[in-house]
């Protein structure tokens, strides 16, 4: 079966600094893959490359077997229509009320069928445990956890086939983080979506993942099931999973 997303030999450098150095990763249809790795290992760049927000230097990104690197215009838009993304900072549009944020994917910013769209936004907000009372507020009026939920609602509103989560629990307290993790798992399952989550939060990885891949120095150096995380036999993975300062991963730049 053709994987939904197949990445081969992906490289990207910013100036002299290589970020992705020949990354290979495949994600099956309906699978939830969590990519773990330290800060600055290129996790966000990976997601942005797939979405076409960052142009890779070389390599291939296939979607259902079709090459997507170099797409633009209408073909790129059609491709993006299949994706939803939860950005690390939420990236809610602070000039728009919550409900217009949630339906932005459906209206592409336009003002079509406002009443229907508002009802649709309220229904989507309910799916992430938010009431209709916040629909008319501005994002800045919400707490961090609520903003994350609204961002999640925006990512799933158009019922995408593929959803990316960039550090979904960063900046949340452990309880709120667990709530978001549960919501992600629940929504991915409900939509039957293919998901890639990048995180350095191991509790989040264990909860969301079918499969975990470890990114280090621009390459996937290990992948396996959640159950295999603790017995990976990989010194890098062990160090990361247990959060040790000593090990093969040097915490300070050399």
């Amino acid at each position: 079966m053709t994987p939904r997303i197949a990445i081969h030999g992906l490289t990207k450098a910013f100036g002299p600094k290589p970020v992705l150095a020949g990354l290979d990763l495949e994600v099956g249809v309906g699978e939830s893959v969590v990519v773990i790795g330290g800060s600055g290992t290129g996790k966000s760049v990976l997601l942005k490359s797939i979405l076409g927000l960052v142009a890779p230097d070389s390599g291939s990104i296939r979607l259902d077997g079709v090459e997507t690197v170099g797409l633009n215009g209408a073909a790129r838009d059609r491709m993006r229509a299949r994706f939803g993304m939860l950005f690390q900072s939420g990236a809610l549009f602070d000039s728009l009320p919550v409900w217009r944020n949630v339906t932005f994917a459906l209206t592409a910013g336009g003002a079509i069928r406002a009443a229907d769209m508002r009802a649709m936004a309220v229904a989507t907000l309910a799916r992430v445990g938010l009431g209709a009372d916040i629909a008319d507020l501005r994002p800045a009026a919400l707490s961090g956890g609520m903003q994350k939920r609204v961002a999640l609602a925006r990512a799933i509103a158009a019922r995408p086939e593929i959803i990316f989560f960039d550090e979904p629990t960063t900046g949340l307290d452990p309880i709120m983080a667990d709530v978001i993790n549960a919501l992600i798992r629940e929504q991915v399952t409900a939509l039957g979506a293919t998901a890639i989550t990048i995180t350095h939060d191991m509790a989040s990885a264990r909860k969301i993942a079918d499969r975990v891949a470890m990114l280090h120095q621009g390459r996937i150096i290990w992948q396996g099931s959640v159950a295999a995380l603790d017995s990976s036999g990989n010194a890098y993975v062990d160090q990361f999973v247990h959060g040790r300062a000593e090990g093969p991963i040097q915490p300070l730049p050399r």
């Binding site: 927000l53 993304m85 950005f87 994917a105 925006r154």
Partner: peptide, 20 residues
């Protein structure tokens, strides 16, 4: 300031991802 802040907070990336 508004557009630069939107860049910093990934709002521009989000807008492109939402096909606008």
């Amino acid at each position: 300031a508004e557009l630069a802040t939107m860049r910093v907070t990934e709002q521009l990336d989000a807008m492109v991802t939402l096909r606008t």
